[in-house]
């Protein structure tokens, strides 16, 4: 087990190094830091002197090493637009995204598990067919389209709910402004959460149904039936336990999808989170902020996936040994 954890962590570090190379390469190829600092009225000689002083003439690996060293100290450069360290900008936007993701995840977990299990057990019933049909339609409707539709119906037409921004916020502790504690904040949270859920929920319903169907066909479930155990016990204790494992792993992988959809949802609702910040950074060619976001999101991915892998290895011993590549 120890060796397994070490191996996973080494891999995670390697992936982070690759991300840092990519991020650094982007920084190198887009934009010229000297021009950003000096403007146009500075002579070529002065620029070259500055370039030397900033170490921009050093070989690529040396500069990359400096970049990684800075990143480890939480320094990913300054945002060109906000005139602040990029990491600070990201951290100030993170609570908005986290709150949106949190409410969505709660909804998805609460709804997908019962619906998925029901659809697997009663696969021929009309409700199950409705759920599966609904989920294939849900997967086929892009998240921004759902969002636009919701905005049109609830904000433009009925005028019940607000369509952009986060509403009134309360600072629950330094740096974390939450919309959970005011009516206006909750009202603003409503439409974005529904949009994001509409795309994530079908993915999980389909996944849980598929896993559960597969588990129900295994020998040990048949054996449990043959032993005359109560059907509910077989379904919810024996079968469901083994359904959850793959769902957790795939759930870890879906984190990337979730973040991508968060970018789209935040853009539509002008939600002041990391996603809309990233799109603005791209529009403004704010390279440092873009790269910082890449590294930050990469870090979240790598940490979550490594933790999921380790938990999985802990629960399922087959993965730990060398064969499980």
């Amino acid at each position: 087990m120890f060796a397994f954890i070490i191996r996973r962590i080494t891999q995670a570090i390697f992936v982070m190094l690759v991300i840092s190379v990519i991020g650094f390469a982007i920084k190198q190829s887009v934009g010229d830091p000297v021009r950003e600092i000096t403007g146009i009225s500075v002579s070529v000689a002065e620029r070259d002197a500055l370039r030397d002083k900033l170490g921009l003439n050093d070989p690529f690996p040396v500069q990359w090493f400096r970049f990684v060293k800075g990143a480890l100290h939480g320094d990913l450069g300054n945002s060109f637009k906000y005139k602040r360290p990029a990491v600070q900008v990201i951290l100030s936007k993170a609570p908005a995204t986290l709150e949106l993701v949190l409410t969505t995840s709660i909804l998805v977990v609460l709804l997908s598990i019962p619906i998925g299990i029901y659809a697997a057990i009663h696969s021929k019933s009309w409700w199950a067919r409705l759920a599966m049909g609904g989920s294939i339609i849900g997967v086929s409707i892009p998240v921004f389209l759902t969002a636009i539709l919701l905005i049109y119906v609830f904000a433009v037409w009925l005028q019940w709910l607000p369509s952009f921004g986060r509403g009134e916020l309360v600072e629950i502790f330094p740096g974390w402004k939450s919309g959970f504690f005011t009516w206006s904040g909750l009202a603003h949270l409503f439409l974005p959460t529904i949009s994001l859920t509409s795309i994530m929920l079908p993915l999980f319903i389909r996944l849980i149904r598929a896993e559960m169907t597969e588990t129900l066909q295994t020998e040990y479930v048949k054996y449990a039936r043959a032993r005359g155990l109560k059907e509910n016990r077989i379904l919810y204790v024996h079968a469901f336990k083994n359904t959850l494992l793959p769902v957790i792993t795939v759930g870890g992988v879906q984190l990337g999808t979730l973040i991508a959809f968060t970018i789209l949802t935040e853009t539509v609702f002008q939600w002041g989170g990391m996603g809309s910040m990233f799109i603005k950074a791209v529009e403004d060619a704010d390279t440092s902020l873009m790269v910082a976001y890449l590294v930050f999101v990469g870090l979240i991915f790598v940490v979550v996936n490594t933790v999921v892998d380790v938990i999985y290895g802990y629960v399922n011993p087959m993965i730990r040994t060398g064969g499980g590549k």
């Binding site: 934009g31 990337g256 991508a260 999101v297």
Partner: peptide, 21 residues
């Protein structure tokens, strides 16, 4: 690794970088 970043994410990043370059 690429798959764990999800295809949307990778596509958004690459096109953002292309647009920057």
């Amino acid at each position: 690794v690429q798959l764990s970043f999800s295809t949307y994410m990778v596509a958004i990043f690459i096109s953002a970088v292309f647009q920057g370059i």
